[in-house]
């Protein structure tokens, strides 16, 4: 520990960031104190960690969720003080002790959740492996017992095609898995098709549709569904919580002719900002103010005149 610290300090000094390292030193001490404090308290709370995998258009993420049981109910852990670390496990290189294989660290949000977005570089590197195991863990938290959770994912792939004509617009998705050095179609898997919306996916086609023998599922798009203002719509195909593939989704933006209802402009209205007051209001009030205050200033000028007369006479 001391060695580490000296090393670190030395490096820091070399970079000339003394102030940062001072903060760092303080942090280290505080951290150390907190941990030793925690070690005294033997009774720590235990928490349940769930880990899920998601691949969306080729980018991967791992979601970690932490809950604990209070009176037979699960509630979100929102006071975890230490970050959760995510490791990529591959035969030998994973070693939490010295940090090898660490993908990232993350403080969970207030809902007890956190999402590790796997960075592009790592993503590219692990793509060739076709089988990935991730380990999420945290340790030495002052409140919670250490926890570790592992998730293994088999490689899969969804392709999405779209056939758009005037009267019928069809989306077709195919699910593949990696088997013996090639992608082969998966039959009988629940593959959902939908249209991407702000918060969720609007389902299209039969609900609960499964892939046929060639791994395909098709659905017609509702023709009156509004797209974006630049005439596009995004189709999504996905599998949810598949036991070996996890969550996998792909999306595709296609041209679309149905425009959304225009957003009403606020314009010059009573409920607009001051700069956008209705012209009638602005001009009428300005003219009233001008007339009345013009007269008031005239009256004040009369006072000045009275004063002037008073001076002239006395002199």
């Amino acid at each position: 520990m001391k060695n580490n610290f000296m090393n670190h300090l030395f490096k820091k000094l070399r970079h000339g960031t003394i102030s940062v390292s001072l903060i760092t030193v303080t942090c280290l001490f505080i951290n150390k104190e907190a941990i030793s404090q925690a070690e005294k308290d033997s009774a720590k709370l235990s928490a349940t960690m769930t880990v899920s995998y998601k691949a969306s258009n080729g980018s991967r993420s791992i979601k970690v969720n932490l809950k604990r049981k209070v009176e037979k109910k699960f509630i979100a852990v929102d006071n975890l003080k230490t970050p959760v670390s995510l490791y990529f496990k591959s035969v030998k290189e994973h070693n939490p002790a010295d940090g090898t294989g660490l993908v990232g660290k993350l403080y969970l949000g207030k809902d007890g959740e956190g999402v590790f977005e796997i960075p592009d570089d790592i993503n590219k590197l692990i793509s060739g492996l076709h089988k990935y195991t991730f380990i999420a863990k945290f340790d030495a938290d002052p409140i919670y017992e250490d926890a570790e959770e592992e998730i293994s994912i088999a490689d899969s792939k969804i392709t999405l095609s779209y056939l758009g004509e005037d009267s019928i617009k069809t989306a077709t998705a195919t699910l593949y898995e990696w088997k013996d050095s090639a992608y082969v179609p998966v039959a009988g898997a629940e593959l959902k098709l939908g249209i991407k919306r702000t918060f969720s996916i609007f389902p299209i086609g039969e609900s609960g549709a499964v892939t046929d023998s060639s791994g395909k599922v098709s659905a017609d798009l509702p023709l009156d569904m509004p797209g974006t203002f630049d005439r596009k719509i995004t189709i999504v195909a996905k599998i949810d919580e598949h036991e070996s593939f996890g969550n996998v989704e792909v999306s595709k933006e296609v041209p679309w002719s149905v425009l959304p209802e225009p957003i009403p402009e606020i314009g010059r209205a009573l409920w607009a900002t001051g700069d956008n007051a209705p012209y009638v209001l602005v001009f009428s009030s300005l003219s009233i103010i001008a007339v009345i205050w013009g007269t008031i200033f005239y009256l004040i000028s009369l006072l000045i005149k009275i004063r002037k007369i008073g001076r002239d006479k006395s002199s």
Partner: peptide, 18 residues
């Protein structure tokens, strides 16, 4: 249910409807 008028869709988290 929450949604965007321009998308003519609302969702309550479970279901997504026109």
């Amino acid at each position: 249910y929450m949604g965007d008028m321009t998308e003519d869709t609302v969702t309550n988290g479970d279901e997504t409807l026109r």
